[in-house]
Design a protein around this nucleic acid. Structure first.
Lengths: 212, 212
DNA sequence: CTCGTTATGCACCGATGAGTGCACTTTAGC
DNA sequence: GCTAAAGTGCACTCATCGGTGCATAACGAG
């Protein structure tokens, strides 16, 4: 890193982060198998040896990339769920939360993560646990908790388990989005995103709402 | 194929089918990239040259496999949807249709098809069109038509477009199933399958039912 | 200044896998 | 039975790619 390091890479420690970023870019673009370690090294502006010094081998690097991505996704998803409060226009809040969740779901990084997950799930089944433990499960729990509080406040009548209602709200969103985004290939315009969220919220409220 | 061909392979034409079957087995087990043409030839009990005579190259073979699988999936899914008639216990019918659709969705072949689709969608975007044209869209249309007839008979009150209601019923099923089956990794027991279908039908009827 | 750590560049190995060439055998149709 | 098409087996090419070795350069700490 010669003279005054004009761009990034200030110290030793952020080599690691540069590698993770570059690796994700290449993995996302080419898929796990097609992505080459040379390409990753080039993208991260790092010698190939440095990859192996930091991460051992390709598979491990991939795992770490998945973990890092899960953490990023968690933060964004939780922020969306936290918008659900006990007072305010329920339909509007649900729609807005849904829209944010939908945006997270359609984010390029999330789409790529799902694609990579699907393609390697048979050879590395533990990947799913990484993602679940770090993101999916926590988001679901958070959503279930919010819904439960709304039920307690008399604003929802979840038939039984709040976890199932949360799962179904998520399903209404993601099921539609997966189809409409062509598995993450097509960018869904904001307006359509809002429409999907609105329809999910409407159906959810028709099923579980107490006011109408 | 010496003497009296004790097992399969009676004529010339079913070499093609043998290859498609074998190729799918290997693709499903190993994924597109890891699957080797030698392994496919061995699985299909066919010389490697025969693969290339019939299908030209690996990518084209893959496409044909995907198309064949889509056709199979379509048949099973349509059979499930056709159980939805205008008379009879609505909740029971919806649950049963949902259960059959869920079974199709969780079928090993369908799970593998989805995995392969996800992993190669970036390099072969036309794969999705193959599957949509041959299966997904048709199933959705058929379901929407059935729901529309139920609405016309006064047994459902779909807010607006029947296609959206159909999409949402599908989403309630597949969204839950994708999570619970660990992306097709875990085999979901019959009882749980029925429970998921029942919950989807219940929520759908709470939202769109006219009887309650 | 010096020493140990970390990064770099480059050549290299070994394995794997798609696709081909060729000589040979089997089968279907006339 | 004969011929042309289709299938077989095997060796082979060519390219790619994960991972390593080595000699060298930059850097941080004492």
């Amino acid at each position: 890193m010669g003279a005054a390091r004009p761009d990034g890479a200030r110290g030793r420690i952020d080599k690691r982060q540069a590698i993770l970023d570059g690796a994700f870019t290449i993995f996302a673009r080419d898929g796990y198998h097609t992505a080459g370690m040379d390409a990753i090294a080039a993208e991260a502006k790092v010698a190939k040896h440095t990859l192996y010094n930091h991460f051992g081998d390709k598979e491990n690097l991939f795992r770490e990339v998945v973990a890092a991505l899960s953490d990023q996704a968690l933060a964004r998803n939780l922020a969306a769920v936290e918008q659900l409060r006990e007072q305010g226009d329920l339909a509007a809040m649900l729609t807005e939360t849904g829209r944010c969740l939908a945006e997270c779901y359609c984010d390029e990084r999330s789409s790529a993560l799902r694609r990579l997950l699907h393609s390697e799930i048979t050879t590395m089944p533990d990947l799913l646990d990484i993602v679940r433990d770090r993101a999916s499960d926590r988001v679901n729990d958070a959503l279930a908790a919010r819904l439960a509080r709304l039920a307690l406040a008399g604003r929802l009548d979840l038939g039984g388990d709040p976890a199932i209602a949360a799962e179904q709200f998520g399903a209404l969103l993601t099921g539609s989005l997966e189809a409409r985004s062509r598995l993450g290939t097509r960018k869904i315009p904001q307006a359509e995103l809002r429409a999907v969220a609105g329809q999910a919220a409407a159906t959810f409220l028709r099923a579980f709402g107490t006011e109408s």
